[in-house]
């Protein structure tokens, strides 16, 4: 697992083929964690955004790299993103980050998490929702976070 200081993934992560990004089981677990830990209360149940930024508009405030997403979840970010360091073990943070990356990715991943039981409110994860719902002028960016990207 990533060490406590830098958050860089261990070598085994690459040897296993980046499981948190590419493996259906981990994406499914990430999807469950997304609802279990109430991510939807700020980012929207389908990732469309609300109080917090959207994952589906194609814009990444801190970049789409896994390390950056993990750092956002683990340590929190300014303007409201809480730190989940003391609420989730690091492996679960990586699973959740993999799912967040999957719904915000411009290119659909080969693996997909399990489907919803209720009606879809956006294209499913394996269709690349952020590619379809790309928004050239993102909304909800806090002015302190600099000019719109």
């Amino acid at each position: 697992m990533p060490n406590e200081i830098s958050g860089a993934p261990p070598e085994s992560y690459f040897a296993l083929g980046k499981p948190y990004e590419t493996d259906a089981y981990n994406l499914s677990q990430g999807k469950r964690l997304y609802s279990w830990f109430g991510c939807g209360s700020c980012h929207g149940d389908d990732g469309r955004g609300g109080v917090g930024p959207s994952f589906l508009d194609g814009w990444w405030l801190y970049g789409p790299e896994m390390v950056s997403i993990v750092a956002s979840i683990r340590d929190g970010r300014p303007h409201g993103m809480p730190a989940f360091r003391d609420r989730m073990p690091i492996e679960q943070i990586w699973q959740l980050a993999g799912y967040v990356q999957a719904i915000g990715s411009y290119r659909p991943k080969v693996a997909a998490p399990s489907r919803n039981d209720d009606n879809q409110s956006r294209p499913a994860e394996n269709r690349g929702p952020a590619k379809i719902l790309f928004d050239p002028g993102p909304v909800g960016v806090h002015p302190d976070q600099g000019p719109s990207p």
């Binding site: 279990w36 830990f37 989940f84 003391d86 609420r87 989730m88 073990p89 679960q92």
Partner: peptide, 8 residues
């Protein structure tokens, strides 16, 4: 209460 236990 201090560890992730309490979150679930």
């Amino acid at each position: 209460l201090g560890k992730p236990c309490a979150a679930c």
